[in-house]
Nucleic acid binder design. Structure first.
Lengths: 229, 229
DNA sequence: CCAAAAGTGTTTCACGTACACCCATGC
DNA sequence: GCATGGGTGTACGTGAAACACTTTTGG
């Protein structure tokens, strides 16, 4: 079935940069393309926006279909529309980035035949289209935003240690932080709930587990409180 | 001439929130629509993206065509794609915001028949489509960004007084600033060139004129300098 | 000479930063 | 008992914020 318009239109897609964090480093989820162009190359998950579909809904649908990822933090990044960014025709893409709790999202095969894998942001293959540029922009945005908004918690399990939290910031910001100053600052905000539990299966003194109090943060935010690391 | 595609596509537009500053307040440039939908209503300048045209180029073209505005600071804001945001069909828009030097851009009639006018951001008419929402987002972005990037100078003439500069920040941030602290901070950055000229035609002591040293800022920025008000 | 805005320093306080040692636990 | 990371306090310096008077100019 064909669709006809009075004037030609660019095609419209969404693409997602999905970040996850493990003990080593920050990772990005990529899919291997099984059709031209860039067949066999790694690319960001994404696809065409359907008529009548909201942009964010399209991004969530593609994440689910291509990578089995759902219920994640998702934020619009930027729109890219250089005429030649897709060799087939003029395709404008609205890019999003997502933060997932790797512990909840085991690296699982996609629902279709394509392979899906996590790559370290420091060791990415060459990506299809202008996806390198989009990935870098997402990484920059994450680095900038993580300091002023409590989005980092989206990368950790619900229960986490201060060590894990500090490691998160050190990884994303790519610099070392002072342990005492970090703890003083983060505990001083009074936004972490001490769960009175400790981690298990560690070969040393077990650390206390905390939970981020999102409700409290939202209340404070309305009153002018500014999160900052 | 008709254009046919295998799958239906949303239409794609760009819209621009153009800010200007005068002695009283922050202003937004609007155009009066002369065709349905929302005929006779005020709206943001904008229009359809052509195939083969870059998004920013489309925004600049529409600004020129609809409002006679050119060579302005322009930055992508956000993309809006709610299916019902345009009553005709699914139209996705990439929104931009622009900062213009009102002194250089006299409020002039548009090149076509529509009327164009500046409105105070505090006293806007009801806008067509979801343009209210877009305008608010642009205003929020401007408020947030002006403190960390030297974009405020785009709203002032090339030669300006410290009074004008402070007034700009007070207007955009919507709070009063201490004169001595402001001057100390801004002059301390050493990014303003003292032109050894003074303003004219004022009924009191004339203030010195300064120019923002953009080149110097760009050099410092690369070395890790952070602008901040 | 009066009105109006330009221009100028100091003190205080909060916060960021640097820094080192003892403690608890598993093996 | 030893290796490993958990957990804690203080001193210092920088920078933000509060604050008032004199100077210049035009009318």
């Amino acid at each position: 079935m064909a669709h006809t318009y009075e004037f030609p239109r660019p095609a419209l897609t969404v693409d997602c940069v999905v970040f996850g964090l493990d003990d080593e480093d920050l990772k990005v989820l990529l899919i291997e393309r099984d059709i031209p162009p860039y067949e066999g190359k790694w690319a960001l998950p994404g696809g065409f926006v359907r008529v009548g579909e909201d942009l964010e809904a399209a991004a969530r649908r593609e994440l689910q279909e291509e990578a089995g990822v759902s219920k994640v933090y998702l934020e619009q990044l930027y729109s890219y529309g250089a005429p030649k960014r897709d060799p087939r025709e003029h395709v404008v893409t609205v890019a999003y980035y997502a933060l997932v709790k790797l512990s909840d999202h085991q690296v699982r095969a996609s629902t279709d035949a394509r392979s899906v894998a996590w790559f370290s942001v420091d060791d990415l293959p060459k990506l299809a289209f202008d996806h390198d540029k989009i990935q870098r922009a997402a990484h920059d945005r994450l680095r900038g935003k993580v300091r002023y908004q409590p989005i980092g918690f989206e990368l950790l399990p619900d229960k986490f240690t201060l060590r894990q939290l500090q490691h998160l910031y050190e990884t994303v910001l790519d610099r070392e932080l002072d342990k005492r100053n970090f703890r003083k600052k983060i505990l001083g905000m009074d936004l972490l709930v001490d769960l009175n539990e400790v981690e298990t299966d560690v070969a040393h003194r077990a650390a206390r587990l905390y939970r981020f109090d999102k409700k409290k943060y939202q209340r404070l935010e309305k009153k002018g409180f500014n999160f900052e690391i």
